[in-house]
Amino acid sequence: MTNSLALRLGPRSITTIAATSLVGIVAFGWPLIAAPTSSVVAHATDAPWLFAIVIPLLLAVVVSSFTDGGMDAKAIALLGVLAAVVAVLRPLGGGTAGLEPIWVVLVLGGRALGPGFGFVLGAVALFSSALLTGGVGPWLPFQMLGAAWVGLGAGLLPRATGRPELVLLAAYGAAASFAYGLLLNLWFWPFVANLPAALAFTPGAPIVENLLSWVRFTLLTSLGYDIPRAVLTVTLILIAGAPILNALRRVSRRAVFDPQPTFVPAP
């Protein structure tokens, strides 16, 4: 069974994804990696807003780098349909202990349709479900980038089939959805002012100290969301992963991404 890639990764799109991801890592991780004397630390409360503007612009560049030569109607339509599936699934777990079944779609979608598709799917899916529920806010760019990484990573997993593949995907799903929770903690953490020093982001403090504070902050606040989310993702992938993957692969065969029409003049 050959897996056709719904979106071809060319040098152009690889470069833009790489650059966007670099900026994205800083956007999420600056409280932990920025030098204490750097200018971003000096403007700690404005930094999240800055990145909330920069990231969507860079994501736009990524999407547009695909469209320039690669994004055909099939990919667009499939993207829209899968994003609709996410939009339906998302309110199901809304608020209840982080039980978001959407990770299954993002992980399996990225796996079956390739890393490029996974990346764009993550961004498009989170954006359209936010539009539908009226949930557009400063958190959205960070969610989009996080979900895009989850989809991208799923597409880059090593080859496997059958049971091992499901186990691999379940392990990845657990790790990815857990990591997503940790990352999203990071972006608003500097905001939460007046935490006790042991939990708070302290601009200018040594990196190790901030890292420990962040770990403690996560343990105390969001672990109750992140663990159930990871457990749900693993359970769903193990139970429903195989049929969903089959359905995605069926449609990718049926759609014939990258068809190679040949024309032979009449003899």
Binding site: T67, A77, G80, V81, A84, S128, L132
Partner: peptide, 18 residues
């Protein structure tokens, strides 16, 4: 430049109620 992105989001939004 974001036309394709817009189209897929439109598709998503019309598909969701369906």
């Amino acid at each position: 430049a974001l036309y394709e992105f817009g189209v897929s989001v439109v598709v998503a939004m019309t598909f969701t109620p369906q």
